[in-house]
C-alpha cells in the first residue's frame, strides 16, 4: 500500500478566469474516498510544491449518494465523489469540474439549468389544496415500482455531462428532465397536464435533440432506465403528433 496519494485537480478561481492544474500529495489513509481526501487538503492546504494555497472548493452534502451535490469528473468519468473510493481508483487521481455547466470555482459548477428544466416540463402534481382530502388513488405494485425508480433522480447531472448533445451552447432539456416528464405523465393526477409537458418536449431543446447515444443510462449512478424514459416520451410525442394531425 503506497503511503501517499497524488491528486491532480483542475482549478479555476472564478467564473471568468482561466483554469489550471494543481497537484496535491496527501498521506494515504485506508478507506478514503475522494471527499475525505479533499477534506484532508482543507485541513492542510499545501500543494505538491509545498506552497500554501487556498483549499479546493467543491460541493457536497449528504456524502451517501442521495443528494446529488458532489458530482465531478474523476479520472475522466463523471460520478459522485462521495462514492468514489480511493483504493479502487487508478493513481494519480484527476479531478475536474463537469464540463456542461458554468464553473463557479474549482470543482463547483452551476446546475441551475437542470432545475430550470424541471420548471419547463412542469414536474409536479397539481393539488387542489393541502387540507385533508382523504387517501390518494390506489395504485398497483408494478406501477409503483416503475415510478419509484424514476423518482430516485437526484438532479446530479451525470446523464447530461455524458450526453454528446447537451452543451453549454444549446438549450436541450436533457435526459433527467425527460425522464421526470415520464414520471409525471404516468401519475394518476399529474397526467392531467401531460399534453402541456409533451408540447414543451416537442419544441426546440426537447425530445428531438436526443441523438440516441445512450451514454446517459450508462452514467446514471442510480441506474434509472433513462433510455426507456426517452423512448416512452418519444412514443407519447408521436402519438400526440398523430392526433394533432387528425384533429387539424
Amino acid at each position: 500500500m503506497p503511503d501517499t496519494i497524488t491528486f491532480k485537480i483542475k482549478r479555476q478561481d472564478s467564473e471568468s478566469s482561466g483554469s489550471y492544474w494543481e497537484t496535491f500529495v496527501i498521506p494515504h489513509v485506508p478507506n478514503s474516498n475522494v471527499i475525505s481526501c479533499l477534506m484532508d487538503i482543507q485541513a492542510n492546504p499545501e500543494n505538491s510544491k509545498g506552497e500554501k494555497v487556498a483549499p479546493v472548493v467543491w460541493e457536497c452534502n449528504c456524502l451517501e449518494e442521495v443528494c446529488g451535490s458532489c458530482t465531478m469528473v474523476i479520472n475522466r468519468k463523471v460520478r459522485q465523489s462521495c462514492s468514489a473510493l480511493v483504493d479502487q481508483l487508478e493513481k494519480p487521481i484527476t479531478l475536474e469540474p463537469m464540463s456542461k455547466f458554468p464553473v463557479i470555482r474549482d470543482l463547483a459548477v452551476d446546475r441551475s439549468r437542470m432545475f430550470g428544466a424541471l420548471k419547463k416540463v412542469q414536474a409536479w402534481v397539481t393539488a387542489d389544496g393541502y387540507h385533508d382530502l382523504g387517501p390518494g388513488i390506489r395504485e398497483p405494485q408494478n406501477h409503483q415500482e416503475i415510478a419509484y425508480k424514476l423518482s430516485e433522480c437526484m438532479t446530479c447531472g451525470c446523464c447530461v455531462e455524458a450526453c454528446p448533445q447537451y452543451s453549454l451552447n444549446n438549450n436541450f432539456l436533457g435526459a433527467a428532465a425527460i425522464s421526470q416528464s415520464r414520471l409525471f405523465n404516468m401519475h394518476p393526477t399529474a397526467k392531467n397536464i401531460a399534453d402541456e409537458r409533451l408540447d414543451t418536449l416537442m419544441q426546440e431543446g426537447g425530445i428531438a435533440d436526443c441523438g440516441n447515444a445512450q451514454n446517459c443510462v450508462e452514467a446514471c449512478p442510480k441506474s434509472i432506465p433513462l433510455t426507456e424514459s426517452i423512448a416512452e416520451i418519444g412514443r407519447q410525442v408521436s402519438g400526440k403528433l398523430w392526433s394533432n394531425i387528425f384533429q387539424a
Partner: peptide, 20 residues
Amino acid sequence: YIINLMDRLGVTFNRTPEGN
C-alpha cells in the same frame, strides 16, 4: 392525513397487493 397528503402529492410509497 399527512401520509395521505404526501401520497396525493406524488410520493412513490410502496404498495400492498391491493394497491393501498
